[in-house]
Design a protein around this nucleic acid. Structure first.
Lengths: 250, 250
DNA sequence: GCAGATGAATAACATGGATTAACTATTGGC
DNA sequence: GCCAATAGTTAATCCATGTTATTCATCTGC
């Protein structure tokens, strides 16, 4: 296989993060895949640190991250910020807003990003296709599972384990959409963003990252994270990927 | 209308917690209500502190709390427990398991409880009815929103605010299923359970509850919680019920 | 190639909450 | 009604993480 050129039928998943992600659940037909491709096609470019939606909004379309990173967050009266999810390519920002009406949190881009704005009608085209409807439902449920893991991370793990756990999760998720290879991936989060996600301080995140580097658990530099010994990191942080509900695919 | 006897068509919501809860979203027809009533009819009695399901299980039916309280939790390798949700009457334990396959967490009763075991076929009867299908989808999305609020609570609020916030949420949810009146409700959680939910220690929960009592924010005794001045508690804990997505109904 | 902005790295010090360990109510079973 | 188990209280000590502040390193646009 080493002789073949990497063509699109070897790794069709790589073309489109959403296709890659949903292929995890249901076998998508050619037409399903096309519907998805169309959605991602007309994504808008956004600068880093721009709000995609804000708490209180009642948008009439759904947002999908096609490229770049974003974060779901809530602000406290004190001005403190808690990030409740990192959104990577293939993640929907607000699948729920159609039913819940009003956003109860905000979403901001963390890097330059491509974001698709999908009108309601377009979403219905998707949910009319059984395989896609199932896949979207699955995606929502996995988001919820990720949130549960996040609670455990913040509530009962120390800073060291918590950061390790989060990095493991991001690695698996990035790999699942074809954006990680050979134990490394582009990880654009600042220490402040990590801190806001884990309920810590930038100072403490810094201290802890250094310890992890010193232990040889991670190599984090220039926006790229490498994990020299994934199993060791996984053990050190009590990470069990079962909650991501990704079937082993080989 | 004040002259009418309070018959079941004035407050049908109160008969059944699930009906009460779902009536929040969609107007349920008489038949819808009947389907729900049947589900709750043949619930099994369970003792306190019994597992309803455990991580790794692949149950072939869905569980619904009809009476009593339960908790969704995860255990860490260290043995520490993190509660990620409290389940009160009208809450489904595992609506997701049908699609996700394997449970990624466990559920335990906290009090004596009545739990309905709903076979897959029965669930499909529900999802075949548009109003119910929508209501179930809504319930799932609200669970997710609650989880987000929980993350904020643990990550960025101090113990005092966090406990206050949680108590406000429980009050609103209990009221929403007809189980709270006049600013008070049965609140069977032990300090240990509160601690495991908020990522704190029993000792610290105890200290903090005392402070809240001293401040006159709560009256907690004999398994009943009274909130003398709800607005003050709400303000003191930065509670905004928007994330529960309960339309104001009057 | 410089100015301004942003992010990372350190250091000194403060503190909320953890830990441990008694001790004291309550509760529920028999 | 008593015993055993469970739940709540209290106090002393300790530590992980927060606070505040300053310096250094990059990046970006012009």
């Amino acid at each position: 296989m080493a002789t073949r050129t990497p063509s699109e039928d070897i790794q069709p998943r790589l073309c489109n993060p959403l296709q890659a992600k949903l292929a995890t659940v249901a076998a998508l037909g050619r037409e399903d895949a096309e519907v998805i491709a169309q959605l991602c096609g007309d994504a808008r470019d956004m600068e880093a640190r721009r709000n995609v939606i804000r708490e209180g909004d009642r948008p009439d379309h759904v947002h999908l991250i096609v490229a770049g990173w974003a974060a779901r967050y809530k602000l406290l009266p004190s001005g403190a910020r808690q990030i409740v999810a990192f959104l990577i390519p293939g993640d929907f920002c607000d699948l729920h807003v159609t039913l819940l009406g009003e956003m109860d949190h905000s979403i901001v881009t963390l890097t330059k990003a491509k974001v698709a704005f999908i009108p309601r009608g377009r979403m219905e085209e998707m949910t009319d296709r059984p395989a896609l409807a199932k896949a979207l439902w699955w995606a929502t449920l996995v988001d919820e599972a990720v949130l549960r893991a996040w609670v455990v991370n913040i509530g009962r793990r120390g800073a060291f384990e918590a950061i390790g756990h989060l990095l493991c999760e991001l690695y698996v998720r990035m790999r699942n959409v074809g954006l990680a290879a050979d134990r490394s991936f582009e990880m654009p989060l600042t220490q402040e963003e990590l801190a806001d996600a884990l309920g810590l301080t930038t100072v403490h995140v810094n201290r802890t990252l250094q310890r992890m580097r010193a232990d040889g658990l991670i190599v984090l530099k220039g926006g790229t994270l490498a994990i020299p010994d994934y199993e060791r990191l996984q053990d050190a942080s009590g990470f069990n990927p079962n909650y991501l509900h990704i079937e082993p695919r080989h």
